[in-house]
Design a protein around this nucleic acid. Structure first.
Lengths: 155, 155
DNA sequence: ATCCCTGCAAAGGGTTTGCAGACGC
DNA sequence: GCGTCTGCAAACCCTTTGCAGGGAT
């Protein structure tokens, strides 16, 4: 099963990172890692906390935030600040680089790729003498069904 | 003077918007609009509040937030959620569309333009059947001097 | 045995809200 | 004068912090 294969790889990667950084391999950290890699959505810290505590005995919010920071620093997780001031996270290992398009009405998030983004980062990095290593591109608009709804209301 | 010309246009635009929406033309709202259009930076709500109260008699935080929302809805102001959970704002009338590149160390913000962004929004809108009307592109990296500093430290 | 990590609850920082009084219309 | 906008402070929400006890090494 592909899911288990990925989980295994990710656990190994994390273990290696923790050993390098001389940090402890606690069951909480692995439980959080697994929960994240079983999901396929963009989730906030609170949702992660809630879902973990439906299954696990108990993991505190502090540990969730702590571990998210760890996972961010080894790039196993990506953090997004969409509109509001609530961060959303998603797994990022073995997952192709992508950007997001968000519906302003229903808040649906769709992922997409476009090679031109890479061209822009490369060119702008050279031009402005920045060493770019990351980017965020978000397109805001209305999805097909929400646009129809709006038209129906205004007509 | 070009500055005054812009201010005048912006005030007129705002007045028209307020009349359309049947909202009151209060001195506070105009003071906030002017303060924003005299600046050339990316500022947060608190900074705007502080600077206004150095000059004006007094304008409350609530009114600042209120008016920022008004200005956002008529697109006289743009709101950015960079990294942290503190929104930054900038004027947007008569100002060319641009994106941002941010240094991870000194947090310097540089603006740039690239026509390919427009191509991407158009193409992805068609492909995914979204009606796109806005986007955010942020490139993260190290500016030239911060990269040198890092190298100096590690060597 | 050490001392880092966890859980808890309180603090923190930015933003929003409720209410009374002020003022644009 | 009516009804909305302002100012104030408290409430809110997400996140961070401090501290004491527990578990990884």
């Amino acid at each position: 099963m592909k899911q288990n294969e990925l989980l295994k790889q990710v656990r190994e990667f994390f273990t290696q990172y923790l050993e390098e950084k001389k940090q402890r391999k606690t069951p909480e950290r692995y439980a959080i890692l697994e929960e994240i890699y079983k999901r396929n959505d963009h989730f906030d810290a609170e949702k992660l906390f809630q879902d973990l505590n439906k299954k696990e005995h108990h993991i505190s919010r502090a540990t969730v935030y702590n571990t998210l920071d760890l996972l961010l620093s080894c790039q196993l997780v990506k953090k997004h600040q969409f509109d509001n001031n609530q961060a959303l996270y998603e797994k990022s290992f073995g997952y192709k680089q992508h950007d997001h398009i968000i519906c302003k009405d229903c808040h649906k998030v769709v992922e997409f790729c476009d090679p031109r983004i890479h061209q822009i980062t490369t060119k702008m990095g050279e031009l402005l003498k920045f060493k770019i290593d990351n980017h965020t591109l978000i397109l805001y608009g209305l999805c097909e069904s929400c646009e129809k709804k709006r038209k129906a209301v205004s007509s």
